[in-house]
Design a protein around this nucleic acid. Sequence first.
RNA 1: GCCACUUUAGCUCAGCGGUAGAGCAGCUGUUUCGUAAACAGCAGGUCACCGGUUCAAGUCCGGUAAGUGGCUCCA
Length: 676
Amino acid sequence: MGTCQALCLNQNRRSNRGTCENASKYHVQLDDELGRWVLRMYNWADNLFPLYGRETLMAQQSYEESALYRLRHSAAHLMAQAVTELYPGSKLAIGPPIENGFYYDIEFDEPLKEEELSKIEHRMRELANLDQPIVRKVAKDVEEARRIVLEECTLGQGEATALYKLQLLDAIPPGEEVSFYEQRAMDKQGKEHLFIDLCRGPHIESTKPIKHFKLMHLAGAYWRGDVKNKQLTRIYGTAFETKEELALYLHNLEEAKKRDHRILGRELGLFMFSPRVGPGLALWLPKGAILRDVLMDFLKEEQVRRGYEGVVTPNIASHRLYEKSGHILTYREKMFPFMEDEEKETFILKPMNCPFHIEIYSSTLRSYRELPVRLAEFGTVYRYEQSGELAGMLRVRGFTQDDAHLFVRPDQLLDEFKGVVDLMMVVLKKLGLSEYRVRVGTKDPESDKYVGHQDNWKQAEAAIMQACNELGLDYEVSPGDAAFYGPKLDLIIKDALGREWQMGTVQVDYNLPERFDLEYIGEDSKPHRPIMIHRAPFGSLERMIGLITEQYAGAFPLWLSPVQVAILPIADRHVGYAAHIASQLLGYDSRQEVEGEQVPFKSDQVDSPQLRVNIDDSRQTLGKKIRESQRQKVPYMLIIGDNDAEAGTVGVRSREDGDLGAMTLAEFVAKVKAEL
RNA sequence: GCCACUUUAGCUCAGCGGUAGAGCAGCUGUUUCGUAAACAGCAGGUCACCGGUUCAAGUCCGGUAAGUGGCUCCA
C-alpha cells in the first residue's frame, strides 16, 4: 500500500492551519491492491497510529461513526462478559471506546493483577468465537429499564453488582430512550453464556469479528473521575479490524517509545534526574543547557522587538507576598513546605512569578502613557506536584517559565492579547509545532477555588473569546480550566505517546491588580486600575524541550542542535587541519594567539556564523566516528582526510542525506547559513 | 496522593532458592583507516534500600524509595 497523496483533510474540516478537535487527521491513500481511494485516519504529526482503514473516501466518517469504533465498543463488552464470568460479583461501571482502543472500569472484590489479563484475554477469545449475536433492546419505560439493570444485567450475581449501572441509569434524562445490548450463545458443552449491559451503543452485530485485540494495561480510575469517589480498576485494551493493523499499532507503539524524551535525553546527554537530588528536579547537562540557551536567546530577541523589558526576581519570598496574591489561600497544596521560623519571617519557595512582577510594577507611579508595561523573566518556579504525576521533563517540580506580565489599560487589552497570541504562533512555527489544540479555560461555576468578583471573570472571559474570534482561532471552551485568578487560553500538544500537555498559555487577570491595588494615572489625572496579562509562549523550558525532543526524535534542526557540526579527522595526522576548520567555524582562530607560528594550511578564511562544533579525535575508524555522530544526531559531519588537507576542502555528510561530497569550507558555510 | 507494574555493571538486558553473566560503553595495547561498529586484553556489581522466611535469597514474603503506565491535578 503506497502513500500516493499527502492530501490531508482535517477531521472536522474547519481549519487549514493544522489544528483540529482531537489532533487527528485523515490521509487519502491509493490502495494499490484494490485500486481505489481509501481514507485513513492517523494520530497527529507523524502518522504513528493509523486508526482505521478500509473506509471509502466518500464516507467522510468521523472516528465515532466508524466501524472500528463500534468494534472497539463491542470489544469492551466482550471483555466485561469475560470478567463477569471469571470474577463473579464484579461491579461494572463504564466501558467506552477511546482514541486508540477501549477500556472498562470495574470494581473487583480482590485487586486484579496484571498477569491475570492474559486469562481474561483467553476467555474473550473463547466467547468471541461463539459468534454471539449482539442485540439491541430498548426499555419501554423507566421501570422496565430499572428491572433489566437489576435483574438481567446482574446475571444472577446479586443486585450489588448493579451499583454503578443504577447510577448511570439515574443520570439518563427522563424521556430519553434507554437501551441495552445483549449477547448470548451456547457453547459446545451446552453451557449458556449471557451478557447484557446498559449501553447507548452502537455495536457490531456479532462477537465474531472481535479477533485482533489485546489487553494493554491496568490502572486505577476514580468513579466519575472524582477523587472523592471510589477508585475502580480500569482495564485498557485495543482492537483492530485486521491482524496487520493491530501488529502495526503495537509496532508503532514500540517505535514511539524510542522517541521518548527520557531515553533520548540520556542518549544525547541533554538532561538527567537523580534520586540523590530529588524527584522532579532536573539536572541539565551541557548539551541540554545549550538547548535552553538557544531557546531563551530566540525568545528574548522576539520580546525585545515587541517592547518587553527583562527583569530578574528571587526564588523565595516572604509568605506575606503570597498571602496577598491569594496563592496561600488557593494554591497551598501545590507549594513546597514553608520555611517556617517562629522568631522570624516565614519564607516560601516561589510557585509563580506574578507577585514579584507586580511589586516591580507598583514600585513607581505609572502614567497611562507608559502602559503597556511588559515585564519578562525566565523565572524558575517550584511546585510540589503529586508524586504520581511526575513524568520526565514533561512534569517536574522545578521548572523555568518563559514568563511575562503585561500591565495594560482597558483600551489596550485586546491588542495586547492578540499580540501575545501572535508571538505564540511565531514560537510554534519556529519550533515546527503544527499540531496543537487551543483551549479556553474558564471558571467552574461550582468551584470555590477562584479569587475575585464574578464581573471581573465575565469581562476577562469575554475579552479572550473576542480576541480569539477576531483572530479566527479555533478553540474549545473548557469550564474549570482557568487559573485561580483568571481565565486563560492554553495551547495543548501531544507527546510521543499521544498524551496531551498544556504548553503555552495566556491569561487575562482583573483580580491580582485589584488584590494588589495596582494603579496608573490616567489622562484625567485620576488613578485607574490596569489589567494584567500573564503569558508564557513555551509554557516552560522543561516541558517544551522535552516535547520538542520527542517531536524531532532528538534530531533537532540545525539552529537548535547542541552540536551543529562534527569534524571527523580520518587519521591522527588530520587533527591539526580539523582544528583549523573548527576554529574557522567557531569564528575564532586559536592559532592567532600563537605568535609567529606558521599557518600550516592553505588559508581559507571564511565568514562563518558562530557554529557549535565538535572534533572527534578518538582513535577510531571513520565508520565508527560517523556512526557515533549519526547516533548523536549531529546535523553535519565534516570528514577530513589527506585529500581535503591538500585541496583545502571538507567532506560534507548530512545527517539526513548522507555523503554530499567534497566542498570548500566557504561553500559549506554558505550552505549552513542558508539553512540557519 | 490513589491503582497496577518495574528496579541486576555507565547503558540495554539474561539469570528466578545453591559460587553474579552477555553485548555496547570505559581503560590498555596493536591498527592510522574516506562515509553507520578494526582486533586483542583488562577492569567494572553490598543484584535500589531496610527487614523477614530458609541450612542457603537478585531469586520467596513485607516495608521504604525512585521510576513506568493510568486516575486525579497541571507549565
